[in-house]
Design a protein around this nucleic acid. Sequence first.
DNA 1: TTTTGAGTTGTTCGA
DNA 2: GTCGAACAACTCAAA
Length: 478
Amino acid sequence: MKTAIVWFRRDLRLTDNPALEAALGQFENVVALYIHAPDEEAPWAPGAASRWWLHHSLAALSESLAARGGRLRLERGDSGQVLLQVARQTGAQAVFWNRLYEPALVRRDTAIKQLLTESGLQATSCNGALLFEPWTVKTGGGGPYKVFTPFWRSCQRDLSALVAPRPAPTRLSCTSDGGGIELQALELLPRIRWDVGMSRHWQPGEVGALARLDQFVEAAVLRYDEDRNRPDRPGSSRLSPHLHFGELSPRQALAAASRPDLTGSAGAESFIRELGWREFAHHLLYHFPHTTDAPLDGRFTGLEWQDDPAALAAWQRGRTGFPIVDAGMRELWETGWMHNRVRMIVASLLTKNLFMRWQDGARWFWDTLVDADLAANTLGWQWTAGCGADAAPYYRVFNPVLQAEKFDPERQYLRRWLPELAALPDKWLARPWEAPSEVLGKAGVTLGNQYPLPVVDPRGSRDDALRRFERLTSMSRP
DNA sequence: TTTTGAGTTGTTCGA
DNA sequence: GTCGAACAACTCAAA
């Protein structure tokens, strides 16, 4: 009986899984294996929210394998050694996996491929995570793109040539040896059970991912162009954590949004474009691996940042005194997710009003987001800070009041997350520090008491930021 | 090689 | 209240 290992990593699905399909095409028998090795991802080992998701996603994968006559084997330890050991035990002759593109994992996987090959095993890696491999999208000069629009134009030319998503195998022949450890032994769930409310918001796993995609395509995609900017509406796809863990492939998302009745609609176009941004982020990180910690634009290395632990803590806990920022940070804390429009606003406040390092913000997001993704997180923070690819110009500083009033016109989002301010009239809700004292009194609000005063001068800090960045650009000019 | 056109998501000011 | 221009040049990518 010819046996292969399918090494599951961040491709926790059976549908459109190239590594699984390739293994089943060449071997009669597969061992579905997941190896817990967070040290190998250091310094970007999954954060607490991400581990919660991973726990449930592994449980879901295990269940769907079992339903097809298979079994998920869990192990922990050095990935290379575990693969060799499991291969010995099961008589497997090959290992299949889908590639990942983060710097530490590229290094690890390259070494493992060599180790396996030297040990006489077939090692095959596939593309299951991206629409296009990072090394295939090149400018006319042969280098990687640094601007989104030409990057995406180039990708779009090849979209129609992509193969359609492949169906899940109906039946798996898996070895049924009892090896491996229990899911609980991976200790992915938090000791302090802050996660009890999380399952109200999310269904990790492939079934949940497909349900979410279906719901989005049926109910929201046609309004996506406008509603994706509205934190008060359920206009986001909320597919990011599913895509991150590979419970859904980008090809499946693309195919769903390319249905004949949706093509040409502004909503579907925008959604597909967001898939393009996901590609762009992964490609950039692949080509510029240092950007997780250092600015892509080297001029920003010399920028002096503020060191203010109290302000950072206020930002993290949603106590900055800017309602839209605090609402977002509380949404993040409670649900492990934040609306993208609000992510930009909170990031702008941290980097451009508080002058804190974007890396501090990226770290907090890393630990609290269920969709924490190194490529997307890095791109997003560098974009806001102005030091990344296609970055926002330095004078583009989000005004947290105007943004709230524009994108949350009825203040539903603010009231949902800031119950202590809910009684304030719309006019003052996004800017409570400007409200007359009798209005505050009537609403039962005492600023500086149950709701804070702004941590930074709402008007002056924008000018401070402009001056700082102006100095930066002029200093670097020859 | 040089030239040319264009670039996710904003704010403020003045008409 | 709405609209266009300025912000400040710079870098990227393609012709």
